[in-house]
Amino acid sequence: MITLTHYLVLAAILFSIALVGILRRKNLLMLFFATEIALNAVNIAFSAISKYYGDLTGQLFAFFIVAIAASEVAVGLGLLIIWYKRRGTIDLDSLQSMNG
């Protein structure tokens, strides 16, 4: 029998994978991928809670998260393309141009 805890632990594991990605990657595109994973983990947790409490609000929150993720990708990828055209790299260390 699959309970709410199963789904929450799965969401926690996926979120931790995303955290590992955010902490260890230096490539900005890979950081974006890790962010997507984190958002998806939260979506699973929301819909699981929505089912086990019999309340639709969790699913609606997941919808808005999907919308936010889509707009984040559109704007972020545009900025990333401009940065790559300018510097020829999307490494995180190349962003340190304001150090006096």
């Binding site: 799965l10 998806n40 979506n43 699973i44 699981a48 929505s50 699913q59 999907v66 993720a69």
Partner: peptide
């Protein structure tokens, strides 16, 4: 992303699963 939509179908959130596949 596709595999995650399976969880939404398991959780009776059919519409969210379809949105997950289409949007992501």
């Amino acid at each position: 992303m596709i595999f995650i939509s399976a969880f939404f179908f398991l959780l009776d959130a059919d519409f969210l699963g379809v949105v997950q596949i289409i949007v992501y």
